[in-house]
Structures are given as C-alpha cells and as structure tokens.
Design a protein around this nucleic acid. Structure first.
Length: 282
DNA sequence: AAGGCGAGCAACCGCAGGTAT
DNA sequence: CATACCTGCGGTTGCTCGCCT
C-alpha cells in the first residue's frame, strides 16, 4: 500500500477529551453538511482536531441512535457468545448489538466480560457454557465456518446464537440486515426537499462507508420508523437537522426501547422487508 | 484530609485494505 | 501498475474517578 499517515502531520491537532463546544461544532457540521472526507471535516467545522479524531468522536459518541449506558444481560451474553465464535472482531460483534460501537464492545469485554468468562471457566461451569457454544457453532457451521469468504455472520444467524431456541427457526429465515448509510438516510429525506442541496447531496456522502451503517439500519428498526413511514412525513415539516435531532436522541432518553426482544425484532424486521429495496444497493 | 491504587473508559496509534488517479 | 489518499479496525495508552488505607 502506498499508505502514509492519513493526516497531514504538519498541522498541530488538539488531543485528549472533547469539550462540549467541540462536540457541538462537529455535530452541527455533520448534520448540516455530512462529513464527506473526514480529513476535510476539522477545517470546515472549525475544529483543531484530526479528521480521524472527528470520525471516531462521531461514530462512538455523537452519532444519533447510540445506545448509551450499561450493557444488558442479553447484550453481555451476545458479546460473550459472539466473541467465542469470532474472537476479537469487535466491529462484527458490534454489528449485532444495535446502538453499540465496536469500541464500547471492546471496552466492555476488556474490563468486565473477559473476567466474567475467566471466572466462569475457573468454576468449571465452563462445561455448560462451551456446550451451549458448541451447539451454536454447529448451527453456524454451514455458512459461517466452512470457508465462506464472508467472515461476517448474518444477523439472523447471530440472533439465533444469542437468543432463545424458540426463535431460531423463525429468524433463520430472515435475510441479513439491510445496510443503510447515514448519507442514504439523509438522502431519503432530501428527496422531498431538493432545495436543500447541501444536505446529503453530491459528493459529501458518497464515501460514507463507516461501520455505523449497520447500526443505523437498526436505528430505523429501533424507532419503528421504516415500518411506519414516519420519517418522510416528519421531514416535510422539519429541517433535516431538527428532524434528525428530534428523532435520534440517544436511546437512553427514550423509555422502554427494547433492542433485543427477538419477537419484536422479528416482527419489525418483517415489516422492514417490505421496505428493503429502499435500502439495498449500497 | 490526602495520597495510593486500580478499574473503567475515551481517545490515540498504526496497520490493513479499498479506491481514485 | 504504482502511488496517494481515505476509511476501518484492533491494540494500546493514559486520563478520570471512586475506593481504600
């Protein structure tokens, strides 16, 4: 690779924790203009940060729909099981935990779950755990562990790993999660308002291939917006930013949101399939 | 009260891989 | 084909905070 560092080393970038003001600047800039090339974001947003730092901050903390706070029991189990299968593929594990980032999953593992698993191993309860994992792995084997080039497991399969058996057959029939990019999300609503060409238009979003695409798709599920057709209507009446902020407040602020109820997930997903074409070809 | 210490977590670093020129 | 540039990812660092002595 002809790769050098992707930052221009000449400029002095600020490091360390982000101030609320910096967060605000970055959030406003991205919501209004998208990020385009991350390397150009700091200058455009008036930040003395590296593009890489901006990207990380956005993905991990500012991106709408993030599920903040402690991991639920189900999430922990999902992480442990997927880690047993995938190893340190944090991004892939995070794909199956809507609203969670790879960094968050990684930290959770390193600070808590790793010890939990080690403790479980020490208590010989490992036998039951590994037995369950073995069966999960067996279930995954046909596609996942038999030389399939695609190292990612489909969402339906992963849920079959992490959820109770009664849902397995049902979920196994489901297609992989449709991918929705942040850019495409904005484009959807920009369709109804061609005048706001700076938002989601043109090149700004073409390279948005951040890993949050999958999470964003799940954000649609989370708020039931895809299936209800809620979005476009709402956006006819609000600015992109306003609508975005209104609808994508962090999950912790929204009562009774359940990410991992397999039933509700499947039902929502069934609805989603109707709209699947909207989000494919990405 | 204050100093030490460890856990948790936010952020950085550097490499890998994809794409444009 | 070579190079440059950009993004994604995983490992690691170091700061913050709470607990203990």
């Amino acid at each position: 690779m002809g790769r050098k560092t992707w930052e221009k080393p000449k400029t002095k970038h600020r490091k360390g924790l982000w101030s609320p003001d910096e967060d605000q600047r970055l959030r406003e800039h991205i919501l209004e203009h998208g990020h385009g090339y991350w390397s150009s974001v700091p200058a455009k947003a008036g930040l003395h940060r590296s593009g890489k730092s901006c990207r990380l901050r956005w993905i991990n903390y500012l991106r709408p729909g993030l599920k903040l706070g402690v991991f639920s029991q189900e999430e922990e189990e999902t992480v442990m099981k997927l880690h047993a299968i995938l190893g340190n593929k944090w991004s892939q594990i995070a794909m199956h935990l809507p609203g969670r980032t790879d960094n968050e999953v990684k930290n959770q593992w390193n600070t808590y779950l790793k010890k939990k698993v080690a403790k479980a191993d020490g208590l010989s309860s490992h036998a039951s755990m590994s037995k369950s994992l073995d069966s999960d792995i067996q279930f995954l084997k046909p596609k996942q562990l038999s030389g399939d080039n695609n190292s990612q497991i489909s969402l339906s399969e992963s849920f079959s790993v992490s959820q109770c058996q009664s849902t397995v057959a049902r979920e196994k029939l489901l297609p992989p999660f449709p991918k929705v990019l942040f850019a495409d999300w904005l484009l959807l609503f920009n369709d109804g308002d061609q005048s706001s060409s700076s938002v989601g238009g043109g090149r700004n979003f073409e390279h948005d291939s951040t890993s949050n695409s999958d999470v964003l798709s799940s954000e649609f599920l989370q708020f039931g917006m895809v299936s209800t057709g809620y979005f476009p209507h709402e956006f006819e009446e609000t600015s992109i930013r306003g609508g975005f902020q209104q609808q994508f407040e962090p999950v912790e602020q929204i009562p009774e949101v359940s990410f991992h109820d397999p039933l509700s997930f499947s039902e929502t997903y069934t609805d989603l399939e109707l709209n699947y074409d909207m989000f494919t070809d990405l």
